[in-house]
């Protein structure tokens, strides 16, 4: 897909995100805005997938697992804009009875979601399992994951990282949202991850880096990573992002990790984000 078109989608997704969290005064806009460009490229340019009909088993399709489930607004918006469910459903986010739960879940059968996430650190294991099943089924598709950088403090991530390298889960492509911030502050202050690239390399992964806000670079990197996969090693992309990207007062701080804008702040945010595809 053309870069301009992807940028237009991303702009609309950012509008969706701030409107969704503002209308229920809760949710996680910071990380959602930071991962908007990546998820837009993933779903509209990179992944082989279909929404009609959505299949839980996803045979023959690339799969995506959101391990940091709290950035559900961006995933829901991208799924809706990609056709998985009506964009009008975005207006039900976090409301009683909605399929769009605060954190992604399968029990209300929202198309596009294959497993619950929210309690951190589990998505990489889930994705490895799905990749093992694809191998057994002779299905050569990719399995993608997205993780927060703070999430990597969970021990289960490193159990999974050892397994993926030891067992050659080489169609697995993990991406780290490396924004350097978590709820209590900067990751370096809370509990530094040290040299993250060196850590993954030492665990036996192929390590890539990219700017998570440059659409062309995301497209090129994903193409390169897919081309380099299948050689016996899992791949990880350390994606530099800005939490709150696209809304000036949300950038440069961890404070919008899990807080919603009020009416005035929403108006200010929307003034910075072009309505390209029509609001829900």
């Amino acid at each position: 897909m053309e870069t301009k078109e992807l940028q237009n989608i991303a702009s609309q997704v950012r509008r969706d995100i701030v409107r969704m969290v503002a209308q229920v005064s809760s949710g996680h806009p910071g990380g959602s805005l930071g991962c908007t460009d990546f998820l837009t490229v993933l779903y509209f340019d990179s992944m082989k997938h279909t929404h009609s009909p959505f299949s839980m088993d996803g045979k023959g399709e690339d799969l995506f697992f959101l391990s940091n489930g709290h950035i559900s607004p961006v995933w829901y918006s991208v799924l809706a804009r990609a056709g998985y469910f009506p964009v009008s459903d975005l207006g039900t986010f976090r409301r009683l009875g909605s399929k769009l739960q605060g954190h992604p879940s399968t029990d209300k059968k929202l198309p596009g979601i294959r497993i619950a996430s929210g309690s951190l650190g589990q998505g990489l294991s889930n994705a490895i399992g799905a990749a093992e099943t694809k191998k057994l089924n002779g299905d050569d598709s990719f399995v993608f994951t997205l993780h927060g950088d703070g999430e990597l403090q969970e021990g289960q991530i490193w159990e999974a990282a050892i397994y993926a390298a030891a067992k050659k889960i080489d169609k697995l492509i993990a991406t780290i949202d490396y924004n350097g911030r978590q709820i209590d502050g900067d990751v370096d202050d809370v509990m530094s991850l040290g040299n993250l690239g060196a850590k993954f390399a030492a665990f036996g992964w192929i390590v890539y880096e990219m700017d998570g806000h440059n659409i062309d670079e995301i497209k090129e990197t994903l193409t390169k990573v897919k081309a380099g996969a299948g050689q016996g090693k899992p791949s990880v992309i350390i994606m530099k992002t800005e939490m709150g990207k696209g809304v000036d007062f949300m950038e440069g701080t961890h404070k919008w990790h899990g807080s919603a804008p009020n009416a005035e702040q929403l108006a200010s945010a929307l003034a910075q984000l072009e309505e390209t595809l029509g609001d829900y």
Partner: peptide
């Protein structure tokens, strides 16, 4: 070919088992 040694990593094993159901396996 249908056995998966997870090592001493029970959390990863359970998470993997859940993921393996996606695509029809019974772990």
């Amino acid at each position: 070919e249908r056995f998966f040694q997870a090592g001493i990593s029970e959390a990863n094993m359970i998470g993997m088992a859940a993921g393996m159901t996606i695509g029809g396996k019974i772990p």
